[in-house]
Design a protein around this nucleic acid. Structure first.
Lengths: 360, 360
DNA sequence: GTACAATTTTTATTCGTACAAATCAAGGTG
DNA sequence: CACCTTGATTTGTACGAATAAAAATTGTAC
């Protein structure tokens, strides 16, 4: 990052990897780059010279500079015992459990796991995919990144499909891409959770959903569907939608807004346990008791949720099983056997963060 | 042969191949070459720059130019951008965070992570190692399996050493094998934690340690060492040792035994946060208040520890940083740069599960 | 003699300039 | 339309010069 030619080099490399410049597409000329980066011709030439020896570009005297076919060798995945696993996160939340489930099955079958994460950005997803394909994996297990948004890496997925590389999605799937998947019926699960709260006497419920993940959208739809079946108090429903990059403070602020209004919510339904834990912490800091003053529910049955105070009422998530099922399916795909999609119908885990509404 | 820089390049290459300049021997300086070939500095630098990217020479700023070990085919065709990571577990304990730290650095540098776990058995460690070597990884990051015991895979490690495959250990290291490592000073960390409890007025402390983990043994040694420095009340010390496969109920039972005795412990030091959380939950279920009746400390600074009630007093563990440092070190090793061992001295995270002893 | 500071050497980065060589687009000619 | 010429564009080679940064060497003081 220090040197100018490094900056130019990194900038161009980034543009190439991100797909801004396609293979064989003409890059800006030296003079254009000089202006663009405000450097001398030497610096530009030093940068593109390095990129040329790294086989990222090729140059034609008098013609220009072009993107080299830098990710071409990964077309014949034959004898590698390597399965790529791409998730949004590695260390956080439920993903270690999913990966563990995958590992249990795959390592037994003699496969190694090539792991990568996207931090829920399409940019990193692209890099991860390219890395995987370069490493000549025999198959791919992918948890989609920001699955609710249009995916800019569709070209790569199309290539994967054309190459018939065994690929399977977990947790969610891009609707436009026809790959097999293992996921959870988030919509009806959240609907069941809502019915549970209705049964407890709650009518004014605030739902908070992360809407750049398709799971969040489905869960929100479940929330809405539940209210549709109870039109008599559907006017009491409130929803907060947020994006993964949004700061927690902003969400808290919006929660606070709803708490001030008349007929304030008596229960909060959270996108997942991670959020629920933070929301409970926020409510506590405001002197609001959970569940006495307000009930809170999560989703995913996070491992340590039962040890919090109050213990979390949540929806189960078949973490290890999902990983194991995905791994078994990928092995089937490797053997050219057909696989069927799997959708779990999880159960409510009733604990103490949601209780019967005390009517006065 | 036409261009000047080609002539210089060919001339030097010839001298190197013919043996005029031996490996690691200093080449003429740039100014000498300028005179010798009667060309400008640009031309000389262009020539030696090419030779450097062809791995015929290496340059040290201020030092000079030297002949690279060019006939070792091993350093040049290592195009595999694959780093093997072998840990005892994938999903449990702190490993997800460590792997995340590794990933952050390596993926930025364009490497992929090949992951494997040993479930803490030498047998699986052997399989993992062979798998990694077969996959032709460019480097290895290894968390030792049962490092306290003699290692039956020493032959493989010797091979790795002979092949000069960049390899680094984390969390612990086999003393007999001279590989670089990154680890934590568990012993003195636990000793500091004990001193903190002593300062809070606690004298009767129960330590619970998992002893099939070498870190557990070190932490236990820290516990013992702390009492050795306070012989006046070392008779009040109590230790529970357990194995990872042991059931939680059995541990609870044994805790209960210590709570019954006279001069019962006023504080419990747990092997890690995971255990501490469960212990606190058990104590609560018995009607014992934490921290009012008894203080509890953990170890590892588990991510969500601050959200529990009471928030966990614990010892920090540089999880991500350990991974990142290991990754940086392996990149150095790949570049044939020397690396130094790193040992962290973690700090106490003072929260609310351990408080000053209320003397009556 | 050793340890530290100052100087020199050496490579690294970056600018400017000039001309050569290949390519490309446009226009003219048969 | 096909072919050629021409001029502009673009990359390739080459030189000179200045400052920065790291390493090696020398000088000096204790």
């Amino acid at each position: 990052m220090e040197n100018k030619y490094q900056k130019v080099k990194d900038g161009l490399k980034e543009d190439i990897i991100s797909g801004k410049y396609q293979v064989d597409e003409k890059l800006p000329t030296e003079s254009e780059l000089m202006k663009q980066y405000a450097v001398s011709r030497y610096t530009v030439r030093r940068a593109v010279g390095d990129l040329e020896s790294d086989h990222f570009i090729y140059r034609i005297q008098g013609g220009g500079m072009f993107v080299q076919d830098w990710h071409k060798n990964w077309s014949t995945p034959t004898d590698t015992k390597l399965i790529g696993v791409i998730t949004t996160h590695i260390a956080d939340y439920i993903f270690p459990n999913i990966i563990s489930g995958i590992d249990q099955v795959l390592s037994k079958a003699g496969y190694s796991i090539l792991i990568s994460n996207t931090h829920n950005t399409h940019d990193k997803e692209r890099k991860s995919l390219i890395n995987m394909l370069d490493s000549k994996v025999a198959g791919l297990i992918i948890e989609p990144t920001q699955s609710a948004l249009p995916n800019p890496n569709e070209d790569l997925y199309q290539e994967i499909k054309d190459d018939e590389l065994p690929t399977l999605f977990i947790n969610a799937h891009y609707p436009r891409l026809d790959f097999p998947y293992v996921d959870t019926d988030d919509l009806s699960a959240e609907q069941r959770m809502m019915q549970y709260l209705f049964d407890l006497g709650h009518q004014s419920i605030l739902g908070i959903f992360q809407v750049d993940d398709i799971q969040g959208v489905y869960r929100m739809n479940g929330f809405v569907r539940a209210y549709q079946e109870h039109p008599e108090y559907s006017y009491l429903s409130n929803i907060i939608m947020y994006q993964s990059k949004e700061s927690a403070d902003k969400i808290y602020e919006r929660i606070n807004g709803y708490l001030q209004q008349s007929e304030a919510p008596t229960a909060i339904v959270c996108y997942n346990d991670q959020l629920a834990i933070r929301v409970i912490d926020y409510l506590k800091s405001k002197g609001i008791r959970v569940p006495e003053d307000i009930s809170v529910t999560g989703f995913d049955n996070y491992q340590l949720g039962e040890y919090f105070t109050p213990s979390l009422t949540t929806m189960n998530h078949e973490k290890e099983r999902m990983g194991a099922d995905a791994a078994k399916a990928i092995i089937k795909l490797l053997n050219r056997d057909p696989v069927e999609n799997i959708t779990y119908q999880p159960d409510i885990v009733k604990r103490h963060s949601a209780i019967k509404l005390d009517k006065q």
